[in-house]
Design a protein around this nucleic acid. Structure first.
Lengths: 288, 288
DNA sequence: CGGGACGTTGACTCAAATCAATAACCGTGG
DNA sequence: CCACGGTTATTGATTTGAGTCAACGTCCCG
């Protein structure tokens, strides 16, 4: 699986500018950051004042640029303000494994806290901005504004849960199921962010998507057409609309092939399998 | 992939005893916990005293018992003191996806911090003990003993990095490469813990291992024999000895099939592929 | 000794990787 | 303006790695 995906990111552009996305930085306060994370400090006026005093950087990262270069010294954590990032690891051959997407409110760079160098890189998929919190400020900020410590733990926990979700996706048997699960997760995330859970734009190309699913990019194409023909989706390049979310959900649970349930003396099933073009067959496993 | 793996854990035993592994608890101090995590607080005598005052639970978890039941309310974080745990997620069909192993010094339950209920379960693979830190104590402990906050972030970061490693494993093309990568990571972890990096005992059965690799358990067997025959390993059930770690490393990098490097005008290669029994062929990609 | 869980090996089939061709799109430059 | 190279997406043909089914040996426990 996993065809190329070699340097999906415009290398030329990155090489031309300074390696680490350096752009006219802005300025914000810890209070701004906390507000974005959903904590208004409304009930802690004193902490609110403290947070307003603590300055945090605000950096612009143009599309395609690296926020973090894998292997570089880790100096800060980043919180996505606007835009989307792709978190990836690439081996020396240039092959790239996408590990996560990070959108508004999510932490980037947390996985480096246990070491010196960043184990992953972060690339902006579109023009983006991030809050910058220096590692050397973490302790101070957490002490002076307990809400920050709380939120940091929450976002880190979320990052962990997200990666676990990705493992679930990659563990699925068939490519169609992998895609279905991925889309459902994306849908759930969109809901959490208050956007439409039915329709959204994929921020990445087929190759990056294939890398996340752990399949060849041609297979992603085919999986899309299969799900479309099953009337579960409507796809136009990166524009995806979920037509039947319940059906998609049912389909995504079609993990490993049926088998005798754990201990329960049930023996019906199968007899429905076999014959036509595969994925279509997996469809009649639907509820209604 | 992923054959059954249905309820690898002795359900009966779990069902018989209270759902959440409940065992004669001990008592420890935050200082003990920090000492295990590698922070002696030697340079902070006052913090040392504070930490010695703060009590944390110490719980015994017999082999096969659940420390955390997926879906249960999250009330605490756990730090493995002795033994090993398997972190897993199981869908309603009884299928189980293993997400991580947790050994001495690692956190368990961190992924629940962003929600109410535990998104994963944790099962002891052998008789184990854990330090218990209530979620309600987290803020206090972090404030009173800054070293705890630091170590908590470090271990959480490690958990995230570990899961990323697992994604790398599951992203590999062939089952043999998956196994090779997994073993190398295990080897690295053993080194970090000061144990032999050449030889170790797998704590899990083939089915759980298969779940982590994202393949059928029969395939794990075959991959083991293939690597053995390649003289890279010596395997006896769960006892694994790495014979040629450099060879194994070279093999593990054999990801996707060769292809034209990014832009570079190189055209040699292949012509070596094809003919014999697959994995053996992949071997001559070695350095020397 | 029989039942159960586990590990290994073989045979068969099929889903997906691979190889290949085509089309659409984009920015550039003549 | 259109031609050109480059990147991306889709679809088809072919091959093969691994999932599945099945049989067998081992070990442990009651």
């Amino acid at each position: 699986m996993i065809n190329p995906t070699v340097l999906t990111t415009p290398v030329a552009a990155v090489a031309a500018k300074p390696a680490v996305g350096f752009s006219p930085a802005g300025r914000g306060s810890l209070a701004d950051l906390l507000h974005m994370l959903g904590d208004d400090l409304a009930e802690h006026p004193d902490a609110r004042d403290a947070a307003a005093q603590l300055a945090v950087g605000l950096r612009r990262v143009p599309a395609g640029q690296h926020l973090i270069q894998m292997g570089a010294l880790s100096v800060a954590l980043y919180f996505v303000h606007t835009g989307t990032f792709k978190i990836a690891r690439s081996d020396e051959d240039g092959y790239e494994q996408v590990l996560a997407l990070a959108g508004r409110g999510e932490v980037i760079g947390y996985d480096a806290l246990c070491v010196q160098e960043n184990p992953t890189s972060a690339v902006a998929l579109e023009d983006s901005t991030v809050y910058v919190v220096l590692r050397s400020d973490l302790a101070t900020f957490s002490r002076q504004v307990p809400a920050f410590g709380r939120e940091l733990h929450r976002t880190a926990s979320l990052a962990l849960a997200r990666t676990n979700d990705l493992v679930d996706v990659m563990a699925a048997v068939s490519s169609e199921v992998r895609l279905a699960r991925f889309l459902l997760q994306l849908s759930r995330q969109m809901t959490a962010k208050g956007q439409s859970s039915r329709r959204f734009i994929l921020r990445m190309g087929r190759r990056d998507l294939a890398s996340m699913l752990g399949v060849a990019h041609e297979t992603v194409s085919r999986a899309f057409t299969t799900l479309s023909m099953a009337r579960l989706l409507h796809v136009n390049d990166r524009d995806v609309e979920i037509l039947d979310i319940e059906g998609l959900r049912a389909f995504s649970r079609c993990t490993r092939r049926p088998q005798e349930e754990a201990g329960l003396p049930r023996a019906r099933r199968l007899a429905t399998q076999r014959g036509d073009s595969r994925a279509a067959a997996r469809l009649q496993a639907l509820p209604a």
